[in-house]
């Protein structure tokens, strides 16, 4: 048994969890898998695995607990998964008493202290290996920095990025914090079917939804077959929220300024 298997085995023995969401090696690939106490075979310890597989485990957890609200599950959670869990807990999508987090330090983001974020893709774009040399924030793999361009160049730049969109919904589907039961991106009146590339509003809707919610995991950008720098885009939204409201997603407790908590609004504009 590897170290992860030993820890999970102990959790099962003490009755702390009745299932464990981790990665299992299947046909040479590490895939998300819900382990039962009887069978921990193949539970991967990700420490030395290269390339490191990344799937939105928190989202899978939400789907399982929606179907089985009573179960108490453990899950392997990297830094980004932990941030996603915090945001989902704040939105009442996960009951914190029903989960047990086995933390794993690996990905880095400026949302997670104390490390500096790096793009998960290397500048040459081969694979999803974390690059541990910090890059300047705001710098994107294509080498163009939208922040410093003037208004018109910036528009051209994003327009060309979004013109590549084939509306596969990969960014949304892999997003660990996207757990909505209804989605305005599937609304016929807002996003007409059969139109490619979709209107700019497609991306603006996502950016607005994710502002103060996106946990900067970069899965969207990895999933995008067109290579749109989505992480940079949503990070821009988060930077605006931080500038205006002093809020960074991913931390315990504090709700987003757009979170509806009833009549009393927190964090209103000065």
């Amino acid at each position: 048994m590897n170290s992860t298997q030993e820890v999970v085995h102990a959790l099962f023995l003490t009755g702390k969890i009745c299932g464990f969401l981790g990665y299992r090696e299947i046909g040479g690939h590490l895939l998300p898998y819900l382990f039962s106490p009887e069978d921990l075979h193949g539970l991967a310890s990700l420490i030395s695995h290269d390339p490191i597989p990344r799937y939105p485990l928190p989202k899978i957890l939400v789907e399982i607990t929606r179907a089985h609200p009573g179960v108490r599950l453990g899950l392997l959670a990297r830094e980004c998964d932990q941030r996603a869990l915090q945001e989902l807990i704040k939105r009442n999508q996960i009951n914190p008493e029903k989960i047990l987090i086995l933390p794993l330090a690996c990905c880095r983001s400026d949302l997670g202290e104390p490390t500096q974020c790096s793009y998960l893709c290397s500048p040459t774009g081969n694979g999803n290996r974390p690059s541990f040399s910090p890059r300047e924030s705001g710098q994107d793999p294509a080498g163009v920095e939208p922040d410093v361009l003037n208004l018109e160049d910036r528009f051209q730049r994003w327009k060309e990025e979004f013109a590549k969109c084939i509306k596969c919904y990969g960014c949304r589907n892999t997003c660990p914090v996207y757990v909505c039961k209804e989605c305005s991106l599937e609304d016929e009146d807002l996003i007409p079917a059969g139109q490619i590339p979709p209107d700019l509003s497609f991306h603006l809707v996502r950016a607005t939804h994710l502002a103060g919610f996106c946990i900067d995991c970069g899965l969207c950008e990895e999933a995008c077959p067109a290579g749109i720098p989505l992480r940079l885009f949503y990070r821009g939204g988060n930077q605006i929220v931080e500038k205006l409201f002093g809020f960074k997603p991913g931390k315990e407790g504090e709700p987003s300024p757009f979170h509806r908590t009833g009549l009393a609004e927190k964090g209103s504009l000065p």
Partner: peptide
């Protein structure tokens, strides 16, 4: 809420290059 969203949206438009 609208006030907050509008402040955000204006900045978002600026970010993607719309005045």
């Amino acid at each position: 809420m609208t006030q907050k969203r509008m402040a955000f949206l204006k900045e978002l438009l600026n970010f993607i290059g719309i005045h």
